[in-house]
Design a protein around this nucleic acid. Structure first.
Length: 551
RNA sequence: GCGCCAGUAGCUCAGUCGGAUAGAGCAACGGCCUUCUAAGCCGUAGGUCAGAGGUUCGAAUCCUCUCUGGCGUACCA
């Protein structure tokens, strides 16, 4: 609708012999107050100066030219110079049957992203322990965004990079070896950076029990290798399992080790050197990322001959580019905020288009435990895991909760509050609306009131303002999805659903849906309920939250 | 020091591209179940949008400065 209105305004300005602005520059928005209509535009205000006309007069002219259109009940000019549009009742009523026709597809627009491939990388946690709360936020955001983009016709691939090579994993393996030695009553020295979580001990125990007695008889190096395979396998499958419980499935799991084995690292280093973007200094090799917008140059090969993380990550991103996506999105946690410029610099230096790559930067999640913020550290073993979160509040609540806030604001997650208040939770509020409708529909069925016998003309019986308000809200759903697909404002979906549920609950309280004496009215209301149900279902579904039929 | 993100009701937060009278939920207070699910509804109260300037028809939103908080600022990943 927004585009239609833009079009109409465009034509209207043209009809006045004025040169209209680009259609995309015509601002159409939802007014805050009902009395200003369903849509509103400020073109007259913003263009008044350019045309040397009074805003109000201009607004009136624009409105006049459009006002005869059957789409609108009214098009009017208001106070300072807004043009306000009210959608006609007829148009709204014609819209409802489309929702039922489209059912699961309502809200989607497969043309939007047709033929375009998007790669979405998220979570990509180190395989050094269970997934934590920040990973959970990333999982929630990434998966829901993927759903919405797919709903818009993009071909989306969800990807998880396993950082199974490098320092942190080495430390983890040594930490398990440490526990192993304790279990075997052997002497072992403490070392810097040892992982302390419970799971380290558990892994050691499990390793012992599964590998039987041979563990200490094989040479150190071989044992470490076996341990490595074992531990990575355990941890990664555990992460996968938990993600599945969280309703998140990845299309691709990429192993960093594999990338290294394939020689991608060397390739990346060679490319960088060939393009003359590296130099030696202080015994290390540097990448002059500052030439590409980074604030300073970065070391890529350390004095000890090892590479820094940028290199494998760059190598990995090269493979992304080579796979030919139209858009590459990385979702990063708060610890990577300073990292993105150098990655982009690397991409640019290698001759790829950095504009294809965009970042979603999540802010921190702090856990509130008994009114105190818990600082998490994976190595010290102080973490709240995703698994625990699922156990305590459930997947639905957790996923919805993470999406209720803007992505770039820090999130305080009070675990007790989320648990205690689960009855008052917005998730339940929305789900309850869905369940209620299911129940009503069932009830109607029992009373032999079949939607089959519904006819569109019955909708004329809907005479309450509440009913129109609901339809207006439903009308916005497809536009909302387009908006989120563009701006990634996932929190707007939770807001939308909460608002829709509120409209319904209030309506339900006021009106009896099924009344045996008025069959046509009842059917019209049932039909309306069904469209609400479909919309809530689709919305929740996109967020990875279930829409229960009973509660 | 520099960079990023934030500061809106007692608490947690919305507020879409700068729009018209600032919005929810929780907590508080007062009502509503013989009727399709009370996990619900209706009402009351609660605000110097951190502060000061600026930009303009119009600012919570944009710019500058100040204050407060978080994070980043590695030859970690």
């Amino acid at each position: 609708m927004i585009n239609i209105i833009r079009e109409k305004i465009f034509e209207s300005i043209k009809a006045q012999g004025l040169k209209p602005p680009a259609k995309s520059k015509i601002n159409v928005e939802y007014p805050k107050l009902q009395k200003f209509g369903d849509y509103s535009s400020n073109v007259a205000l913003s263009l008044a100066k350019k045309y040397k006309k009074k805003p109000m007069l201009l607004a009136r002219k624009i409105a006049q030219n459009i006002s005869m259109d059957a789409l609108f009940k009214s098009v009017s000019a208001e106070k300072p110079g807004f043009v306000n549009f009210q959608i006609s009742r007829m148009h709204l009523m014609k819209f409802l049957p489309k929702i039922v026709e489209q059912e699961d597809k309502f809200g989607s627009d497969m043309e939007k992203g047709k033929g375009k491939k998007i790669l979405l990388e998220f979570v990509s946690a180190n395989p050094t322990g269970p997934l934590n709360i920040v990973n959970a936020r990333a999982a929630s955001v990434g998966d829901s965004l993927a759903n919405i983009l797919s709903f818009l016709g993009y071909k989306v691939e969800k990807e998880f990079l396993i950082n199974d090579a490098g320092n942190q994993v080495d430390l983890l393996i040594k930490s398990i070896e440490f526990e192993l030695n304790i279990l075997g009553h052997r002497e072992i020295e403490e070392f810097e950076g040892r992982y302390l979580g419970d799971y380290v001990q558990k892994l050691a125990k499990k390793f012992l029990s599964e590998e039987t007695i041979l563990v200490f008889q094989v040479p150190y190096k071989e044992r470490l290798q076996k341990l490595r395979e074992f531990a990575l396998n355990e941890i990664i499958s555990n992460q996968r399992f938990t993600l599945k419980l969280f309703n998140v499935c990845f299309d691709n799991w990429i192993s960093e080790q594999e990338l290294r084995d394939r020689g991608c690292i060397e390739d990346a280093l060679t490319y960088l050197a060939e393009t003359e973007n590296t130099y030696d200094k202080d015994g290390a090799v540097w990448f002059c990322s500052s030439k590409f917008g980074d604030e300073k140059d970065r070391v890529i090969m350390k004095t000890d001959g090892g590479i820094t993380y940028l290199v494998p990550d760059l190598a990995y991103h090269i493979t992304k580019y080579k796979r030919g996506y139209h858009k590459i999105i990385d979702i990063f946690g708060p610890d990577h905020h300073g990292y993105t410029p150098r990655l982009k610099a690397g991409i640019a230096a290698l001759g790829f288009n950095p504009k294809l790559l965009s970042f979603i930067l999540l802010q921190q999640v702090s856990l509130i435990y008994e009114n105190e913020k818990v600082k998490m550290s994976k190595r010290r073993g102080k973490i709240i895991t995703l698994q625990q979160l699922i156990d305590e509040v459930g997947t639905d609540v957790a996923r919805f909760f993470f999406l209720m806030r803007k992505l770039n604001t820090p999130l305080d997650f009070d675990i007790h509050l989320a648990k205690e208040k689960s009855n008052e939770n917005p998730v339940y509020y929305v789900q309850y609306a869905h369940a209620r409708i299911c129940s009503i529909l069932q009830n109607a069925n029992k009373k032999r009131l079949r939607l089959r016998s519904f006819r569109p003309r019955y909708l004329n019986r809907l005479r309450f303002e509440e009913e129109l308000d609901i339809i207006r809200h439903l009308y916005k759903f497809p536009e909302l999805i387009l908006h989120i697909g563009k701006n990634y404002d996932l929190n707007l979906m939770t807001k939308y659903l909460t608002d829709l549920a509120a409209l319904f609950h209030s309506y339900y309280q006021k009106v009896r849906i099924i009344s045996p004496k008025t069959k046509e009215l009842s059917l019209a209301r049932l039909f309306l309920c069904k469209t609400i149900k479909i919309t809530i279902h689709n919305g929740l579904n996109l967020l990875g939250v279930s829409a229960p039929k009973k509660m």
